[in-house]
């Protein structure tokens, strides 16, 4: 009973997050300029991170938490580097 509730709500949540990733990837592919693509990549990272947290709840192990943490850190570093590249034309000055 309770595991059924948890199973189905987690499944629906993961499908919704997958749709969110599809929308972000659409903007990343179609975006007219470079800043739109970077914004799409950032939203894509966040949706993937939340999806891994939900995978961790479903499996019942906390290994996925570290994966989500690494994805969050790498998303931040990547977005900052790309924005700085747009601003200055180089990443490390």
């Amino acid at each position: 009973m309770s595991s059924d509730i948890l199973h189905w709500s987690l499944l629906i949540s993961q499908v919704l997050l997958a749709l969110a990733m599809v929308a972000a990837a659409t903007r990343m592919i179609r975006g007219p300029r470079a800043q739109d693509r970077i914004l799409g990549l950032d939203a894509f990272y966040v949706a993937a991170m939340l999806m891994l947290v939900l995978f961790g709840i479903r499996i019942g192990s906390s290994v996925y938490f570290e994966v989500a943490l690494v994805i969050g850190i790498l998303g931040f570093v990547g977005t900052v580097a790309l924005a700085k590249f747009l601003m200055r034309g180089e990443v490390i000055e």
């Binding site: 509730i5 948890l6 189905w8 709500s9 987690l10 629906i12 949540s13 993961q14 919704l16 997050l17 749709l19 969110a20 990733m21 929308a23 972000a24 659409t26 903007r27 914004l39 799409g40 939203a43 966040v46 949706a47 939340l50 939900l54 709840i57």
Partner: peptide
């Protein structure tokens, strides 16, 4: 509670990404 919270979070993220698109 866990199912509701995960559904709310997923719906909000989906709305944000739809707005982005």
């Amino acid at each position: 509670i866990v199912g509701l919270l995960s559904l709310i979070g997923a719906v909000l993220t989906l709305l944000g990404c739809l707005g982005l698109a």
